[in-house]
Every structure is written in C-alpha cells, then in structure tokens.
Design a binder for these strands. Structure first.
Lengths: 218, 218
DNA sequence: TAGATTGTTAATCGATTAACAATC
DNA sequence: TAGATTGTTAATCGATTAACAATC
C-alpha cells in the first residue's frame, strides 16, 4: 500500500462487497455512491473516500459498475483466490461455524477441523473429518493456512494460538473472552458475545431509566 | 446521563469489568489505571477518562479499589440485577450460545429459547425447553425480556426482529450477515463472522505480499 | 449540451494522548 | 512529609462530512 489504510475503512469493505453481491444477483449493473450509501448505512462521501484509497473505480456522472467494483474489492481483500482456513474446536460453536461455512464463500474454505476429544476425533462435521490436535502443525503447513478460527474453551486459547502462529498462521478469529497475546505481525479479530451483551445491557438500561422518568447521577 | 457517553467508552467498560473480576478472583484489592491499562491494552489516560464520565471512583496516590470499582461498573452497565434475555433459534449457533450461557454471568440469564422446527420444539437445550415461535410475544412479555439474541437464518432475521421489538425488546444481538432495520430506540449489535474473516483476509494478504517483496498498486 | 456523479480538498467533528495541579 | 496517582484541561491525532471542480 502506498500509505496506511485506516482500520475502519477495511472493516467497511466487506459490507460494500456483500451489498454489491446482492446488487449483482438482482442484475443491477451500475450503482452510485448515494445508492450504495442507502443500502449500507454509510454516507456517500465516505464510500467515495474509502474506495479512493485503492483506485479510481467510478465514472463521474455515472457511478460504479457493479461487476467491476466487485472484482476490485475481491482483489483488495485478497478474496480472488482460495483461502484455506483451519478451525480449532469442534464443540457447539465450532460445529455451527463449520456448517455455516460448508460451502466456501468468497474463496474462504475450511481446510481442516481439530479437536482434543478422542470421542470426536475421526467423526465428521460438515463433510470434514475431525483431526487430532497432534496433527495441527503438519496440517496447517500442508494446507498453507494463514487464517485460523479458534473455538476452544478460554483456558486453551492462548496455547492453541501459540501453536498456530508457530505453524504459520497470521490471522486469528477468536470467539473466546480472552485478550490474546500475539506477535505484532499476527492479526486477531475477536467476536465476544459477552462483551456485546454487556454493552447492550447499558443502552437498554439507559432507555428504561429514561422512559420511566428516573434521573441517573445528579 | 448528564451528557452523551461515546459508544467506544461503553464498549470498553465490559473489558474493564472482566479484568477487574479476574483481579478480584486473585484477591487483588487495589489497582492503578497504569496496571489496569497493561492488563487490558487500553492506555492509563483513557481508562481514567472513561471512568470519569461516570464518577470519581479512584483515590489520588492510591488507585482504584477493585471491589468498589466492580460494583460501580455493574451499576453503570445495569448488571446489578437479573437481566432476562430470550434466544431465538436453536440451531448449532443457538445451541452453542445456550450452553455457553447455561449459568448466568453478571446477571444475564437466558429465560427462553425459541425455534420454528416442530422436531425441536419441546426438546431441551442447556436445561431449557425449546418453545414454539407462536409463544414468542407472550413469553417476552411475561419475562419482561428487553434483550434478544437472534440466531436464525438470515432470511428470517428481519421478521423475527420486528416481532421481538413489538413485544418489547430494545436490544438485539444479531449473528446473521444482514443489516437490520429497527426503530431508533432499539439497539442492534452485530456479530458477523463473515465480515471479520474477510477483513482478516485483507491483513493476511497484505503481509504475504510485503514479505514476498511484491509491490501492490504503484 | 445539460445533468449527474465522481475524486479530492478543506472544514468539522470526535476521540486519544500528554501534562499537571490537586490530593491521598 | 515525600511519593504516587487521580481527575481534568489542553494539545494532538484521526476520521467524517461538506463542498465543488473535473468529467462522464
């Protein structure tokens, strides 16, 4: 990249991608930043600015070609080829994830599933055989997996992450409520239901207080 | 609240809460903003500023009393009492969520689980009987549930949300990859694995290009 | 051409960091 | 008291919005 792209911009690109896929499915050929803004909830100015970090994809007076912008977004995000990921943990959450991603989306394909439980090892989930954790390093290397989804109990997450990183993983999607320590060349995205629920509780509580006429902290 | 609290601040409060719970478990009685910062990855100045939105909880020269700050954070987030939530969808993801929250954490307690599938209705998940969607409104009302977790297929999410909101729900945790339309007094938090994976792909791809010496877009 | 919409610059808004007087 | 750390103000940094010349 010629200069640093803000993280908020990268977070929005998949939203644009999803919306454009929907437009493509509906045979829409051109879209303006205004229209895309209404569909995504992002301002038109912001969309134009976000896209301009990566190139000039639009035509003044016309808008953006849906197919052309889709191709470019896929290239930017690195989704223009198959991306093998490994899933660690075949509990309820891991199983849910495996089923949801049974069919690869935008190149992202689960290449292997691991678990420690001997009862589970060898069984199949979403068409994939559950492997023993002992095969982790070898499999990650063979698949050249750079991304891992971690759906193991919180106490095991740090150790699993360490092994994955040593095996070559550079991006981790973590579902456990822990702050992972990783080298700075490794990227962690957390999906923490507890944090989201607790912050949701704040807003719901606020609204309840307000509507009941109570006056917090004077 | 006397003035508007930034959303980023509210998102950090549960992180402080979690870390303080850990300190309490380890019998630590006092903590400085500096120490809390090292444990959470948030700067000490930011922690002091965040907390100061809600009151003066610390003592100059000493720091924060762990128990006292915990109590206050619980009060701020509205977690000082039981918070009934309903879970819609008893598929893999809903089941994972139910098992993880079998024991209430910080007051948040699953009060009911719903599904449309007649095969599932009546069966038990994490000690709770799965109810038919027909009971949704009545049950939400009876439990006075203000928060719902939605773990149903994407095409059903908007309709389910509409019914929940009409029944009194004001906060929604949505796992499906859709932009929910809700009245402005309803809060939606999205946990979207697809978006997180795709943005992760960007960073991993970048690093791969950089380390291989390739030069993107000149 | 006339109308529409881009890419980009300048203005605004908001959040983080630095610094320090107050105070335990 | 001397040392430490808070709460808060001012300075900095970053992201969003507004506006418009360029151009299809």
């Amino acid at each position: 990249m010629r200069f640093k792209i803000p993280k908020v911009v990268i977070k929005r690109l998949p939203i644009y991608l999803r919306t454009l896929l929907d437009l493509e499915r509906r045979r829409v050929e051109m879209v303006s930043s205004q229209e895309l803004g209404e569909l995504t909830g992002v301002s038109s100015a912001q969309i134009r600015k976000d896209l301009a970090y990566f190139g000039d994809f639009g035509k003044p007076g016309v808008g953006y070609d849906v197919g052309y912008l889709l191709t470019n977004l896929r290239n930017i995000l690195g989704l223009n080829k198959e991306i093998p990921v490994v899933l660690v943990g075949a509990g309820h959450l891991g199983t849910a994830f495996a089923h949801y991603n049974r069919i690869p989306r935008q190149g992202i394909k689960i290449g292997a599933i691991f678990d420690t439980d001997p009862q589970k090892v060898g069984r199949r989930v979403a068409g994939l055989k559950i492997r023993d954790m002992g095969e982790l390093e070898e499999t990650v290397g063979r698949l050249r997996a750079r991304i891992a989804i971690i759906a193991v109990p919180a106490p095991a997450v740090q150790e699993v992450t360490k092994r994955l990183v040593e095996a070559g993983v550079r991006g981790v999607l973590n579902f456990a409520p822990v702050s992972l320590k990783v080298p700075e060349n490794v990227h962690v995205h957390n999906l923490d239901t507890t944090l989201e629920l607790q912050s949701l509780a704040f807003y719901v509580e606020q609204d309840t207080l307000r509507s009941s006429g109570a006056e917090p902290r004077g």
